[in-house]
Design a protein around this nucleic acid. Structure first.
Length: 478
RNA sequence: GGCGCUAUCGUCUAACGGUUAGGACGGAGCCCUCUCAAGGCUCAAAUACGGGUUCGAUUCCCGUUAGCGCUACCA
């Protein structure tokens, strides 16, 4: 039974690195009929916030992946304390009465003294019990078996065989002096209890894993399979953080900028993992089928953003590819709400007709209002009359072109074919290039030079609007 | 400082001893074309450094350098 978990701690918004970890867990499980568990690691009561929790669910919901089981560590404290008790009863942990936050001067003295607090490790059970009974606060520390075992090993799904000398592993805390479990204990106790079979997480936990193996063993549980992921870093090589890098590390920033969740997931997958066959654009199903630990890299991946350009160019490109691949109906549905937010009077009917004209002209959903405004606005945004003047022409030519267009559009069949035929005929008649004929009309009707192809645009706009705007344009001319 | 991990174009990556070191994004140019896109084609661009092993190293080993991570009663 394959079971994976994603265990964010609610101390900030959902980070894109965390999102990628979740995605890889999800992909691994979905491709192998496994179970995805979401566990909120909220044992650090000082730093947890409801706002952060909301942000995590918001981000996860947007990714559109889902999970099968949900737990909160704060509701499982009894389990953690029982686990601590089990380890203590086996003599594999000891009470450390050193006051929290103290300098622990003695620990810094001598070779390897940082590994543990000598006085406390050797405290007799009787004295330890007596001081505990007297109400003296203590932290519970794991007694790393340096005398009996030279090293701890495990096989990582990504990094291969790993070993670390017990002489280099410190006596880490299991319980804080307030009785709360530490991350190491809570995490392992839960992983064991929830029967997690594969732990897929960031590489920042690679060296912690030796401690975790020790805890699993102390609990009498078989350690799961571990697979560590290379980290996502900023262009300067440092790890992504809100303080240094701002909102670019937050998942909701991408949502708000108009990324498609499937494109965003696709992009994140390509950071630190490769299908190894040059595919870039991949559907969710393709990702599920292609994902395996073998494709995961071991070096950190840079998210290539800049201050003036907050998104990785490849993410934007991938988004445009996904936009173009979307069914017209689905893209229309998504853009409908974008247009509504922009204050446009848009209906699905109209958006459905506009989508084919703008789909390959937007990279982000949010670019649509700026590209398609003239389809929805009653009144065109003000533009410079000089724009109406065609290449190698003057205002007089613009006027002639527009007057001809006005005349001809009054009766022309409003279809691509019909419009093209009459407008080209007029250009020939005026002995000017087609482009010189089309540009004044385009600007008159769209309010700018750069716009979708003319005939389709006129068709969608309709005869009435076109004539009205051409009329206005003629009046603008000197 | 100690321990661990990593190192291919600017960026994401492919090549698991033998390739003109491949693809993509971004950049430059050309083509297509009613503008803008999209699309097609072309170009520039990389094996961190030094030693080995080998007939032959991007690939294996060692060292150097650099980066990252852990070294909390944070997670």
């Amino acid at each position: 039974m394959l079971r994976v978990r994603f265990a964010p701690s609610p101390t900030g918004f959902l980070h894109i690195g965390s999102a990628r970890t979740f995605i890889f867990n999800w992909l691994y499980a979905r491709g192998r009929r496994g179970t995805v568990i979401l566990r909120i690691d909220d044992t650090d009561v000082e730093r947890n916030t409801q706002q952060s929790l909301d942000s995590i669910f918001e981000g996860l919901g947007w990714l559109d992946l889902g999970w099968d089981e949900l737990y909160r560590q704060s509701e499982r404290l009894e389990l953690h304390r029982r686990a601590a008790q089990v380890i203590f009863d086996k003599g594999l942990a000891y009470r450390d009465f050193t006051p929290a936050g103290s300098d622990e001067g003695e620990r810094t003295r001598g070779e390897g003294a940082w590994l543990f607090n000598p006085g406390m490790r050797e405290l007799s059970r009787e004295e330890s019990d007596r001081r505990a009974a007297a109400g003296e606060p203590f932290a519970l520390r794991f007694r790393v078996p340096r005398e009996t075992r030279p090293e701890i090993r495990f096989d990582d799904g990504v990094y291969g065989a790993q070993a670390k000398a017990t002489a280099d592993i410190e006596d880490f805390a299991l319980l804080r002096s307030d009785g709360m479990p530490t991350y190491h204990l809570a995490s392992c106790a839960d992983d064991a209890d929830l029967r997690i079979s594969h732990i897929i997480r960031g590489q920042d936990h690679l060296t912690n894993t030796f401690k975790h193996v020790l805890i699993f063993e102390a609990l009498g549980a078989e350690p799961p399979t571990f697979a560590h992921l290379p980290l996502l870093v900023a262009p300067d090589g440092t790890k992504l953080s809100k303080r240094r890098h701002g909102p670019v590390v937050s998942v909701t920033t991408y949502r708000d900028a108009g990324f498609l969740p499937h494109a965003f997931v696709n992009f994140l997958c390509l950071l630190g993992w490769s299908p190894k066959d040059d595919r870039e654009q991949m559907s969710r199903q393709e990702l599920i089928e292609a994902f395996s630990f073998e494709g995961i890299n071991r070096s950190n991946a840079v998210v290539n953003f800049k201050e003036d350009d907050p998104f990785d160019p490849k993410a934007i490109w991938l988004n445009s590819v996904h936009i173009r691949a979307l069914q017209t109906e689905e893209l229309a549905d998504r853009l409908l709400s974008v247009f509504e937010q922009a204050g446009f009077d848009a209906c699905r009917e109209k958006v459905l007709r506009v989508v084919p004209l703008i789909r390959e002209r937007i990279r982000l959903l949010n670019e649509a209002p700026a590209v398609a405004d003239f389809f929805f606005l009653r009144e065109l945004a003000p533009y410079d009359a000089a724009e109406l003047i065609p290449q190698k022409g003057d205002a007089a030519l613009a006027r002639r072109v527009l007057e001809r267009a006005r005349a001809v559009l009054g009766t022309a069949e409003f279809t691509h074919q019909g419009l093209e035929t009459v407008l080209r005929a007029e250009a020939a008649d005026l002995k000017i290039k087609a482009g010189q004929m089309f540009q004044p009309v385009r600007v008159a009707v769209c309010g700018r030079k750069n716009a979708p192809p003319l005939f389709e645009t006129l068709e969608v706009l309709g005869r009435e609007t076109c004539l009205e705007r051409i009329e206005q344009a003629i009046r603008k001319l000197p």
